[in-house]
Design a protein around this nucleic acid. Structure first.
Lengths: 340, 340
DNA sequence: AGTATCCCTGACAACGATGTCAAGTGCACT
DNA sequence: AGTGCACTTGACATCGTTGTCAGGGATACT
């Protein structure tokens, strides 16, 4: 910047004025400075810039995902990125791999970089117990938006309609003649998992179907866990005739188990979340996809709203879900009527 | 920091010394300062820190992906992230969505943030033509590592063994009795796509199989393009009996087309890249997965090597690939012998 | 002529940290 | 007592930028 000033024969402050399009700079000087800038290939240092005025220079947002390897979160991220790029924000992204330790360290790191706000999908073990780092940020009222998993009651929160989605799944299976419907869920303390289980319970209750506790398994994290859980359930004296798998990986695990056992056409499956190639498997996998990009987009918009408009009262946004029939959810159960 | 100094009754410089574990600070003062730091919850500003000494404070790396929505790049990213976190680096990530414009803007943005180095998967239209932003970085010898797509000859470059992988695919299909093997490829100017086509051509040549130019289609970017290309090829008078799809999305498109036509058990398919649920489709999709996390890991290590050890001569790292049989690649062709 | 107003510019301090240098303690050695 | 060395601390300049304020020239008003 000094070099530019020297080249143009003006002071550094004037260069700053030209760069920032401030008023009251004569056209001739502006020209000289702009020529000098181009000649020397000068670009302002966003860090130094941000040190003085925390607003005008592009904002920086910190995004902490639970697990970026999961395509659901990748899709969420694309929504965030779209809005952030549109608004000229830089985003720092990282994945906690569902460990509160990692998550808290990342928040610290982002804080050292003085991000203007956070978008967080709390790690699975953060949703019970708690995170000192998150508590601290909330305490000092850093703008922060949560996605998918609730953290506290007074914070911005963007989520899918988990209860409604789970109800749709359970009702769909009941309508296709199933009464013994197994529920496979993620960690029981995970907020979204609780909501899905609640939807399952409510829907079955409303349909007058008794719930067999032995068919409700939670604490399942990955494909392998879901697959072996499914296999065990199918060995019961009164095995389930249908599965509701409340997360993408779990549905894949169930389907894989059914294929191993050759029962994919006898047992029904509905999975929460979208699954790639779900339509190519035979039978196709019936799913309840979330509108993941919308979750990300809305979260980013809420954050920018806090940042730009100084909003402080918390907002909760709910995105609807729908069920997509592909075959696995339409396998007829023992109580099926002709036309479900 | 000033507050901490006041609280501890020392100068700011002494606080700095404590924070940085410099020698020659008395134990008593260290204690006082550390207590003050904890009491006030002080954390040093990484940006201000980086302004003076470009090294000691955590480095910042800029990662520009071509398309983060593609699971291949997501997997690459997890490798980068693992190494970067290990080394205490922060990474700025963004996706160019395969547009040079976006890519160049991102590089500018990262530059404004004064990142210490770049990891780049050049946008597809950067690999011909060129990118002024990339050229400029190379010109001023910014540390930079390319992944998957070559950019220039004198830069670090990490890639899979595309030629060998494509040869494996073609030879595998020939060994299963196929002679009319279609090649579906990405943009013809994309480096990795060229290499895969080369492998295909060489393998067929070595096997004494004539190449029918009508079976070689390139410039296909997504599933839909590959699906309709496959359908058109199958309407030829002499249709292909096998497909080599040189990218994950293209293989999915072909498989989808075959399923629509009910020919999935008659026409063989081998796909480059891994595909989720490839084993659950019937027949399973034979693929040549890349070791994506390794690509990311190595790239990040190379970058850190440039940064820490000041290496300047370019290194090219090649990661091997293997073929995984799942069924679709083993569909017998018209010239099949008993035991391929 | 005096002065109020607009317009343009630059000197200087600040942001939050570290590098440099000099000064101040002790202590052991000549 | 004087010198040298090891240790400990702080004042100050610096990184690259912007906010504040003051100053100067032109123009238009009393």
């Amino acid at each position: 910047m000094r070099d530019v000033a020297a080249e143009a024969g003006v002071s550094v402050k004037t260069v700053s004025r030209v760069v920032n399009n401030e008023r009251w700079v004569s056209g001739e000087v502006t020209d000289r400075v702009e020529r000098a800038i181009r000649k020397l290939g000068y670009r302002p240092d966003a860090r130094a810039r941000a040190m003085r005025n925390s607003g005008l220079a592009g904002r920086t947002l910190g995004v902490v995902h639970a697990d970026l390897a999961n395509p659901f979160f990748t899709a969420v991220h694309s929504g965030i990125e779209a809005v952030a790029q549109e608004a000229g924000c830089t985003i720092l992204t990282a994945s906690s791999r569902d460990k509160t330790d990692n998550q808290d360290r990342l928040i610290q790191t982002f804080n050292d970089r003085r991000v203007d706000g956070f978008i967080v999908v709390p790690a699975v073990d953060t949703t019970y117990g708690s995170s000192s780092a998150l508590d601290e940020e909330i305490e000092r009222s850093t703008p922060i938006v949560f996605i998918d998993r609730r953290y506290g009651e007074q914070n911005d929160f963007v989520r899918s309609d988990n209860v409604a989605g789970a109800k749709m799944a359970a009702e769909h299976l009941v309508a296709h003649g199933h009464q013994r419907i197994a529920y496979l869920g993620d960690h029981p303390n995970l907020w979204s998992a609780q909501r899905r289980e609640l939807g399952y319970v409510e829907a079955l209750g409303a349909s007058g179907v008794d719930i067999d506790e032995r068919l409700v398994l939670t604490g399942l994290y990955d494909e392998a866990a879901a697959a072996s859980a499914a296999e065990q359930l199918l060995e019961l004296d009164a095995p389930p005739t249908a599965f509701f798998a409340a997360k993408n990986y779990l549905a894949v695990g169930v389907v894989r188990a059914l294929h191993r056992l050759g029962k994919q056409n006898d047992i029904a499956v509905v999975g929460f979340d979208e699954i790639a190639l779900a339509d190519l498997v035979v039978p196709g996998i019936t799913t309840i996809p979330q509108n993941a990009p919308a979750l990300g987009r809305i979260a980013c918009e809420l954050l920018l709203d806090r940042l730009d408009n100084g909003r402080t009262e918390p907002i909760e946004e709910v995105v609807p879900v729908t069920l997509i029939r592909r075959g696995s959810g339409e396998v007829a159960g023992p109580f099926a009527t002709d036309r479900p």
